[in-house]
C-alpha cells in the first residue's frame, strides 16, 4: 500500500483523487512486479497506462481549479510542475505505442511514476494544505 495519511492535503476532492491515483499506481506496480509471464500482465498494463493518461489530466485540472478558487499564490508554478508530470506520462505512453509495451520499458515507467507521484504529493501538494490551513486560521481539520 503506497498511500499514507501524511499525504492528506485537507480538501476532500483532492484527497480522494490522490488516494485513487496511489491505489491505481500501487496495483500497477503489483501487476508489473508479479511473477507471471509478461503476456498475462499486458492487458492490465495497457489499461493502467490509458487510465493514467486520462486521470492525471482530470485530477490536475480539478486541482488547478481548486487552487484558483482558494487564491493559491503558487498556482502558475504548480501548473508548470503538472505540465512536466503530464508530459512524462505521455512520453512513456508514446514510447510504448512506438516501441511496444516491453517489460523493461513498463518497469522503467512504473519506477518513475511512483517516485514522481510520491514526491509531488508529499512535497508540492502539501504546500496547498499549508496555505489552506493558514487561510482558515489554523482551525481546519482534515
Amino acid at each position: 500500500m503506497m498511500w499514507k495519511e501524511k499525504y492528506r492535503v485537507g480538501a476532500e476532492l483532492i484527497d480522494t483523487q490522490h488516494k485513487e491515483l496511489f491505489h491505481r499506481v500501487s496495483n500497477f506496480i503489483q501487476a508489473v512486479q508479479s511473477p507471471q509471464p509478461w503476456e498475462n500482465k499486458l492487458e492490465h498494463v495497457k489499461e493502467t497506462m490509458a487510465f493514467m493518461q486520462d486521470y492525471v489530466i482530470i485530477h490536475f485540472n480539478d486541482e488547478e481549479r481548486f487552487q484558483a478558487e482558494i487564491g493559491y499564490p503558487e498556482l502558475e508554478r504548480h501548473k508548470e510542475i503538472h505540465a512536466r508530470f503530464r508530459a512524462g506520462v505521455q512520453g512513456y505512453a508514446k514510447r510504448a505505442a512506438d516501441e511496444g509495451f516491453t517489460e523493461e520499458l513498463i518497469q522503467e515507467f512504473g519506477g518513475r511514476l511512483m517516485a514522481w507521484l510520491i514526491m509531488h504529493v508529499a512535497a508540492e501538494d502539501q504546500k496547498i494544505g499549508q496555505f489552506l490551513r493558514s487561510q482558515q486560521g489554523g482551525s481546519h481539520e482534515s
Binding site: M2, I29, Q33, G111, R112
Partner: peptide, 16 residues
C-alpha cells in the same frame, strides 16, 4: 515507496 518487497535490482527498482 512501493509498499511491497523488492527482490532484484530490476528496471523498476533502478528507475525509481
Amino acid at each position: 515507496m512501493a509498499g511491497m518487497e523488492m527482490k532484484e535490482l530490476d528496471a523498476f527498482v533502478t528507475s525509481a
